[in-house]
Design a binder for these strands. Structure first.
Lengths: 209, 209
DNA sequence: GTGTACATGTAATCCGTTACATGATTCC
DNA sequence: GGAATCATGTAACGGATTACATGTACAC
């Protein structure tokens, strides 16, 4: 709860240290895999892969991030059809952008702790206020959802397996697949805990734990 | 169709549906376990328990949320030492607040999908831009950090084990403990993947995958 | 008398979402 | 002609953080 070391923030002009939010690096990363993409395409790509281990920004956020990357000289855009409004705009990563991304990716700095917000567990935490069946149903629905996600992760990993250069995305997706399996196990273990708790409550609270 | 005063949103006075952000319910939940706490105390409590499965809001956020809860009639505050500025202010949950919290906790509505943002995996995803040693070091540091967290979760669970009424927090913390164990295994599996990948790269890419 | 923990709050700012507005193309 | 998908963007807003401002109590 105390102060950290100071650092200025408004000094990201060109080329120097330019601290982007992680989302910025993520978008630049998407751009680095495949050349000349529209924001719309990047969004779909994020939805079908990035979101499993990181997050898929809203489309409007992606557009904003792309504009920022271009302002920094990390990306270039080419607008189809002269200067009409609403023409499709395709972005490419620049050399400068590739350099900055590589420097970021290879940096030794702390990537930051994982952020985990689990609304289901939050509900369980307040379980004494809910009926046992409510909780059970919630957990079961979560298990169903996770199974669905798991399928999607697998598909994504299989797709990635077909492109030789996507070795690292493949590792990330492999991590994600195992993560989803673990999530299933965790939910099932919690279900068992809840059942045990409900059973203990139905009996008069005589003996031990 | 265009009637003015139909659904303005600043009309959540008392008792009706009052949709809070999850953070609001979390803070109200903290308040529901222990009566008469200061914002500062709630923050520490969140840091040592809530954050393992959900999240610990910034202290300023907690103060803001407490003010909102009071405005909704879900909490009351009592200010020590008359009307001095900067006196300590203790909050209590009200009956109305307890009712609203219970209704929320027992609701069948979707609690929302878990949010997982894993900056480390994001880095791995872009691993082709980094030196193998950089990644290894990152993952190993993450393992160390997770081990530390695991210890803290265990402490929290042991503390919770001493209070009989904290059965559900105990379940949540049990989930969290297993989650941290899983996180360790995931990181180790990823490390193995990375090593395999690095080894394959050192050899000429002759045969199959 | 200095540092640390306790304690509260404001201001600026940013990140990100939702809702809205617009329009082209394609398929039926 | 109408729906779905592709495609881009603006506006309003809310959630949350950081930095800052302020002050007490207590230990050393």
């Amino acid at each position: 709860m105390t102060s950290r070391h100071t650092r200025n923030k408004q000094e990201n002009r060109q080329g120097n240290d330019a601290r982007l939010p992680l989302t910025g690096w993520a978008v630049l990363g998407l751009l680095s895999f495949r050349g000349e993409r529209t924001g719309y395409e990047l969004k779909k790509w994020a939805d079908s892969s990035l979101r499993f281990f990181y997050w898929s920004p809203a489309i409007s956020q992606i557009y904003a991030e792309l504009r920022r990357l271009e302002a920094l000289g990390y990306a270039m855009s080419r607008c189809s059809g002269a200067e009409e409004p609403r023409a499709t705009r395709r972005y490419t990563i620049t050399e400068s952008g590739r350099g900055a991304l590589a420097a970021w990716a290879d940096g030794a700095g702390d990537p930051g702790a994982p952020v985990l917000k689990h609304p289901l567990v939050l509900r369980v935490w307040l379980g004494h206020l809910a009926a046992p069946d409510t909780l059970r149903a919630l957990v079961e629905r979560h298990i169903e959802r996770t199974r669905g996600e798991l399928k999607e992760v697998r598909d994504a990993r299989l797709r990635a397996a077909r492109v030789a250069e996507w070795e690292f995305p493949r590792v990330a997706l492999g991590w994600s697949e195992r993560q989803h399996l673990a999530e299933l196990e965790l939910a099932e273990a919690m279900l068992a805990d809840l059942d045990r708790l409900a059973a203990a409550r139905r009996r008069p609270p005589t003996g031990g734990a």
